[in-house]
Nucleic acid binder design. Structure first.
Lengths: 242, 242
DNA sequence: AATAATTTGTCCGTATGTATA
DNA sequence: GTATACATACGGACAAATTAT
């Protein structure tokens, strides 16, 4: 209905895309909600439907909307802002966003430290480790799949404790470690594998953000190292000076 | 030739994977180099070829090796470590890694600020901006495709200056800004689009790391905002306390 | 230029141990 | 305890792509 104003000097599709983006930002279209049909948008702006399609494709490319054939185009839910700082704890971050965090133990195994892991944890090669596989979610929506390694000597019942407390911070607290910090964080991306796709409820081929990190105690002793895969379409890492 | 020692209690394929990973870490297999054939590895470890394939699949999953049918399995070149700090400059980072950085202007256009951009740059909606499309590479290997927006009023000939100096830092210096810092950095991932795939020399479906950032002057005035897409298989963001 | 050899990818099957219901 | 499912490990055969002859 409402005709939108178009200015000169900018590609039409870009103006349409900007207009829709603004509408999403203003809350005129709500997360998860459906946009008007392509023809209707085209009428509103007084442009051809193909111009609208070009605009929607650009927005879809950036992950703002998601088109479903036969159904409509929907506004993607806002990505969860996930700050990466030296004090990074999943539960606190999700709580801060007003969501309900949950950690779920998938599997735990005892295994000897490989060369790489031994180096990161400052242990001898072959030292007994626990490898804990977990799934983390916010309000029931899966966010990340993580693999955590920690000493089986220093944390004798880590899997059991994690299963009960559902949080790695609480596991460390259980062993008397009240504070710890992130020593290093490395970020890459790859395509989700079949197992993670199932757990994270992602379609095949979707990208995941891979975060490898080492957490150390206040005195610098390595505590645990982990490799987490985040559903890229649901999170956004934010880096701001500490 | 050399028979490898196997221990009990750990899945065979995992032991083989650890062994190969260690060999890569030790430099016994060099980046870009070829691993022995699957059958040869199987003989070395005294396991079935399928067990080796399971191990190689795990390493390929983590991006350490890359298999080419008919040719062999190769050690992936180490990802470029790309530190993200408040002082983040592409050329300095690449130089620090002993590589030759290069910035190439692809296109530049004048366009009015959309609502989102105006907010980020603290300008009025519709204020004239330059949108600069650039390709950045290290030793001739494309690393990232970036779109940068900056005020066309404050930086009247930014595209020309960038084309000549090939560095955004030098563009700012040309306008008397000797120092600036990153105000915010947001990281996501998505699948490469066709245009970026061609420029970055990436196969379709490969993931890219998307970095949206805002740079400000020493006094906090926003200078430029950008959205860069990095070939995920060639870089690794590193976050360490400033 | 055509063929053979090599190497990874896929599919079949068999057997065993280990959780889980 | 029994049955079922799953991961692991091995063996063989062939397809598909690449490289060497």
């Amino acid at each position: 209905m409402s005709a939108e104003a178009l200015s000169a000097g900018v590609a039409l599709w870009r103006q349409v895309a900007d207009g829709i983006e603004q509408a999403i930002a203003d809350g005129r279209y709500l997360p998860g909600g459906k946009l008007p049909g392509e023809t209707e948008i085209a009428e509103n702006y007084g442009v051809n439907r193909h111009t609208v399609r070009r605009a929607l494709a650009a927005l879809a490319e950036r992950g703002l909307v998601r088109a479903e054939r036969g159904s409509g185009t929907f506004v993607r839910s806002r990505r969860i802002a996930y700050p990466l700082r030296t004090r990074t704890r999943f539960s606190e971050i999700i709580n801060a966003g007003g969501r309900e965090p949950r950690g779920q133990l998938i599997a735990a195994e005892r295994e000897p430290a490989s060369g790489a892991l031994a180096g990161q944890l400052d242990l001898a090669i072959g030292a007994p480790l626990f490898r804990i596989e977990a799934l983390r979610s916010a309000d029931g929506v899966p966010i990340s799949r993580g693999t955590t390694w920690l000493s089986a000597v220093r944390f004798p019942d880590a899997p059991k404790v994690f299963a009960a407390k559902r949080s790695m911070t609480k596991v460390l607290a259980h062993y008397g470690i009240s504070d710890y910090r992130r020593l290093s964080t490395r970020i890459t991306a790859s395509v989700v594998d079949a197992a993670d796709a199932a757990r994270l409820d992602l379609a095949a081929g979707r990208p995941v953000l891979v975060v490898e990190s080492i957490d150390v105690a206040a005195d610098g002793t390595p505590l645990l190292t982990s490799r987490a895969r985040f559903a890229a379409e649901r999170v956004e890492f934010v880096i701001e000076p500490d």
